[in-house]
């Protein structure tokens, strides 16, 4: 775990209102694994840090993806090159992508695309064929950056690709990884109990001490999205107890 004052080096828009920020954070870039996150703090910013999945890495840079969902994210998007952002990470337990499965489907809804580029890279390194399945409400909300040997798009309104949810558009694969709204992940859990899913929760510290990011488990009790998670075996989460109305989470 590192704490880095990371200069903002670039920003690009990848869907309507959805941006990727590049930060210079060498130690984190070199150690982060797919599905892990960074906890970001900035000035003036909110009181608590905000967790973001690491979207991509490139050399000494890490990237995060976000939309403006409130005052804090608006401030982040208003920053200019060389403004610094305090980066704590890498945090959490990411995807398990050991060699074995021959194919993987990376299933994302909206900002749930966040951990998928790193997952694609690690899956490919482990010898898997990668199918990229990305959904949103409509074409202008789809993230324009995609990866994978095969790409499937899904929109609720049918404006691009499959008309329906990303989950309904997933082809056969040996392994399924998913990230998106909790409602979507609950649907993933019904269909693929062994899928690996990255859940969204509110977080306090991000380092395991505050117990604020409790994830209810099917076997009873809770553990911590920031430590044991944010990636879980889909059937291990008690989905009925996870709020579906979070205004944000790993991406706000």
């Amino acid at each position: 775990m590192f704490l880095v004052e990371a200069p903002l080096v670039a920003r690009r828009e990848v869907a309507r209102g959805m941006f990727v920020l590049s930060l210079d954070a060498p130690q984190i870039a070199q150690s982060v694994r797919a599905g892990q996150f960074v906890n970001l703090g900035w000035s003036p910013g909110p009181l608590l840090r905000r967790p973001f999945s690491v979207y991509r890495t490139e050399g000494d840079r890490i990237e995060v993806i976000l939309k403006a969902v409130g005052g804090g994210t608006e401030q982040l998007l208003a920053m200019t090159a060389r403004d610094t952002i305090s980066c704590l990470g890498p945090l959490g337990h990411g995807f398990e992508l050991s060699p074995g499965p021959r194919s993987v489907a990376l299933v994302s809804g909206g900002l749930g695309v966040a951990p998928m580029p790193l997952a694609a890279r690690e899956a490919r390194a482990a010898g898997m064929g990668v199918t990229w399945v990305h959904g949103a409400r409509s074409v202008d909300e789809l993230c324009s950056e995609a990866d994978g040997d095969q790409q499937i798009w899904a929109t609720d309104d049918g404006s691009r690709g499959f008309a329906g949810t990303a989950v309904a558009a997933v082809p056969d694969a040996d392994l399924v990884l998913a990230c998106g709204p909790n409602r979507m992940l609950a649907a993933v859990a019904m269909r693929w109990p062994d899928a690996q899913v990255a859940v969204e929760t509110y977080m306090g510290c991000g380092t395991g001490v505050c117990l604020g990011c409790a994830v209810p488990l099917a076997r009873g009790g809770y553990d911590r999205a920031c430590k044991e998670g944010p990636v879980y075996r889909a059937a291990d989460v008690e989905w009925s107890m996870l709020p579906v109305h979070l205004p944000y989470a790993i991406s706000s």
Binding site: P46, L47, L48, Y202, G204, A214, P216, Y222, M241
Partner: peptide
């Protein structure tokens, strides 16, 4: 003790 169900924390102005 198991603790309470989520959400367990929320940020408020200058506090949580």
């Amino acid at each position: 003790r198991a603790g309470t169900p989520p959400p367990r924390i929320v940020e408020t102005p200058s506090g949580m």
